[in-house]
Structure formats: structure tokens, C-alpha cells
Computed example of a mutant assay.
Amino acid sequence: MTIAAIVMAGSRPGPDPLLTGSGASTKALLPVAGQPMLVHVVRALRASPLVGPITLLAQNSAELAAEPGLAGLADLHFSDSGQGISSSLAAALPDDDAPVLVTTADNVLLTPSIIAEFLVGAEDSDVAVAMVERRVLLARYPESQRTWLKFRGGWWSGANLFRLRGRRVLPLLDFWGRIERDRKKGLKIIAAFGPWLLLGAVLRLFTIQQGIARAGLRFGLEARVVPMSEGEACIDADKPADIVLIERIMAGRNAS
């Protein structure tokens, strides 16, 4: 069995400093190590035997479909999205409860091994989120700057990989649409799930696994954190320094 994948490849409102002087019209097509970000991500998905059809979501999907680096890759589908992440994703979900794998166009260091580790850990969940604990990342890449969620037993950063069980997650996506503007503000996100979850996070009364599980219960969902063993899983291309680090990692991969 394979899982369908969705790649969120749209642009957020407002200017993106990464695009200044680059000549790229959208972040997904910004070159990294000689290829647009999106090409690296789609090729990693296509190289995984666990991934089936791939849908690319963007405000102007025809622009992505014209990218030469995607030519010849099987089972790619292009769909226009709206302005919001949650509403666009909700519209792209299957008509039933079939699971989908979701990632982003800036998840440039994605590999088949990262995909496999995540999907094994996410199996049978309604919602699964890939995350990297700070010690795992800093052991290899101490210069990497991420946004950390602090819980009992560790500090965690998201890895832009999600497994969603089809339309069962629509209430969660509707909720996320109301708070996604605060996606980089960890405590605001936690507070939106209720005062008990916020208090527990501030006082570190529970682990992130317990916190995510409790958040899922609010929507009747079995929600799970999948801890990733490779620090690269949470290094996405948000800042110029990220791209420098990503290109160094890619050069090392090619050399080996």
C-alpha cells in the first residue's frame, strides 16, 4: 500500500525576503543547490516506494507544472489553492478517511529514509506530526536556529511532515485556520487548545507526546508525535542562513 502525498507550495501574503534579487517568482521555485526547492522535495517523495500520487498545491499551480525539473516524474497532479493553509489543505483531502502525507515545498532535505521513519511511527494515527528534539539537531548542527516548543523531557521543533486521516481531520483544520497566523508563537498555539494545556506546557507537567495526544482528544482524534532521529528533518529553508546550511549538507551527501 502507498500513501497519497500533498505538497504545500503556495506563497504567504506579503513580501518574502528570500526572493529579493533571486529572480524566482515564488519560494517553491527558489533555487537551492542548483534546483528549485520544490524539485528536491518532489523527487524525494517520488523516490520513496511508500508514496503514491503527489498533489502540488499553490495559488498558481500552472507555474509549477511548467518547471522543467518536474518533467517526467510520474503521478504528479497540480491544483490551485486559496490563501490559507488550512482551507487549501481541507479542499485537497480525499473524499473519505484515507490517510495522506503532507509536507511543504521548503522541506528541502527530505529523503526516502526520513519519509519511511515518519510513516512507520505515524501508522494507525488520525493525526501525526514529525518533530525533532533539540539535542538531536544540535548534536550535528549547533549553528541551526529553530523555533522550539518546551515540554517536560525536551525542546521540540516541527519537521514539516504530517499524516492526516482524510476528512476526519476537517474540524481540526477549521480550528487551525483561526489560529495559523500565530504558527510561530508556540505558547499562543498551545493556549488556543485551552487553559489546562497552556498551564501544563508552561509548568512542563507533561511531555510533548502527552500534550499532542490531549490536543487531539478535543477533536475526537488520536494524535501523535513522531520523534525523528535525523536532525536534518527539521531544517527547512526559512532564512538565508538555512539555505547556506542546507547546501552544505547536500554537498556532503553528494560527496558520500
Rank of each mutant, 00 (worst) to 15 (best):
G166P: 11
S87D: 15
I208H: 10
I114M: 05
D182Y: 02
D95T: 15
R146N: 13
L29K: 01
A255G: 02
A91Q: 14
R165H: 00
K27M: 06
R253K: 14
D242S: 06
Q59Y: 02
G231L: 09
D75S: 15
P195T: 06
G211V: 01
Q59C: 02
A71M: 01
S125G: 12
R248F: 11
V132F: 05
T111W: 04
D96V: 05
L45N: 11
D75M: 13
N60V: 11
R152Y: 06
I246M: 12
A33F: 12
A98I: 10
V127N: 01
M37Q: 00
M228R: 09
P13A: 08
I179W: 06
V132P: 03
R43Q: 13
R214A: 15
I190A: 09
P68I: 14
A65H: 07
K27P: 02
R214D: 14
M8V: 13
L73D: 06
K188Q: 11
L30E: 00
L199F: 15
G200V: 03
E117P: 00
P13L: 08
E230L: 10
D182W: 00
W156T: 07
S86V: 01
S25N: 06
M37Y: 01
L119G: 02
G10I: 02
P17M: 13
G158Q: 04
L50S: 15
L57M: 11
A33K: 02
P68N: 15
G231R: 06
T2Y: 03
A71L: 04
G216E: 13
D124F: 00
G82R: 02
L64T: 00
A105T: 00
Q35V: 09
D80T: 08
A5C: 08
V100H: 05
G194P: 05
I249C: 13
R178S: 13
R183H: 13
D16C: 01
L73F: 08
R181K: 15
V202D: 05
E247R: 00
I114Q: 07
R253I: 09
T55S: 14
T26A: 03
A191E: 00
T55K: 07
P227V: 04
P171G: 07
R135K: 15
P99K: 04
Q59N: 06
A223T: 15
A116C: 07
A255T: 03
E180P: 01
S81R: 01
S81K: 03
Q59D: 06
R12T: 10
R168E: 04
A237Y: 02
A139K: 14
L187Q: 10
A92D: 03
R46C: 10
A91M: 12
